[in-house]
Design a binder for these strands. Sequence first.
DNA 1: AAAATAACGTTGCATTTGCAACAAAAAGGA
DNA 2: TCCTTTTTGTTGCAAATGCAACGTTATTTT
Lengths: 225, 225
Amino acid sequence: MENLNRYAPVLEKSPLFSGVSRQDLFSILGCLDPVLKKYPKNNYILLLGESISHIGIVLKGTVQLFKESQEGNKNILLTLHPGELFLEAQVCAGLEQSGVTIYAKTDAAVLWIDFHHIMKNCSSLCGFHTKVIENMVGTIARKNLELNQKLEILSQNTIREKLLTYLSKEQEKQKTNPFTIPYNRNELAEYLSVNRSALSRELSALQKEGLLTYHKDQFQLYFLP
Amino acid sequence: MENLNRYAPVLEKSPLFSGVSRQDLFSILGCLDPVLKKYPKNNYILLLGESISHIGIVLKGTVQLFKESQEGNKNILLTLHPGELFLEAQVCAGLEQSGVTIYAKTDAAVLWIDFHHIMKNCSSLCGFHTKVIENMVGTIARKNLELNQKLEILSQNTIREKLLTYLSKEQEKQKTNPFTIPYNRNELAEYLSVNRSALSRELSALQKEGLLTYHKDQFQLYFLP
DNA sequence: AAAATAACGTTGCATTTGCAACAAAAAGGA
DNA sequence: TCCTTTTTGTTGCAAATGCAACGTTATTTT
């Protein structure tokens, strides 16, 4: 548990513990029986098909979720940063095996918490537990809305429309106009499920037409979303 | 509350109350302070932008969720039947205004339950509450996985792959081999976000190649998923 | 039954996209 | 600094897709 002290700032700002004071945080953690694990850069955290019973909290580093097809193609589903949860939907839905692959893009640390420990009220800490459960529901619900947004992007039928939909949403989220996206070209192409060179082609066409400018992962839009 | 008696069978089989006996059901309902409302055929249940604080349970009729674009195009997101929940993700995520329009396709009845009443344990009924909360989390989490499945389908890059992915999943779900899909061609094309005639073209190609046979909404697969 | 409507399949053509190969630019290492 | 590796842009070509128009088959209505 002492090891966890250094991650207290991350845990405090984690959506799972939002609204919980640092003191209460450690009371709750003592009750949730969490497991801290560390993963070196470019190592797998969880493989497709492995059994799952715990939800994960990223404490350090960048963690990516992939969907692998039988042919071995990898498709980025999510990129996670410290404080964020993963596997919570699968575990809460009662899945027993992972349908995704999880990967440490940088050196990473993950806190694993058994789902049943979260849902079962222990007698002494009901108040805290209620808050944690509420936070977990909220987290899953927000992820739900995010998935809906990605569906909206992927259901556009041209690369141009996918790009404009994605960039608009990203710009609205960040509320600044030159803004930075969290993907390089390859990753963006994977995220949008399109060919990388076709994506580059479309980007320069959009720039030529004056709809936007970009450099690397910096974008500026010249149209109203 | 008496009015609710006639809807007990629907409520019992609703995912929100699964595993709850009829007796307990009414205890819980007394504590959740639900509001029953009826809507005539072809009337709006909720407009875009209206404030939301309650989750809905369809008690009777067919209810449709629409996404409206700025241009006014309406896009069916979901068609709901008795027992099913709606707005649960939006409300649990803390959204205060609706991003969708909801509509009574037939005469309908809806039970509205304040989200905060679900999450706040009342002193006397903790056991029931825990079950209801668990059900709600599970429902949102499963919807989450469904969205992930649709994302997997839409992230395939050819119509052929989208079709085969969709049909495989549908076949596995139904576990019978000549099986029936819930869409006609137009709806299937919309679901897969592809052109209808291109879809037909691909279907007959697949049939010609012996991978499957079909007639209307009946499909039979000749490959192992 | 006849007529009208809707659903589905087919096809030619224009556009979009994927693919591959290569060039240019940027980043990282020795 | 120089060299290597990675990232990004460019382009020709083939394949896939959207689009539109039309014919056929099912379904519904009168």
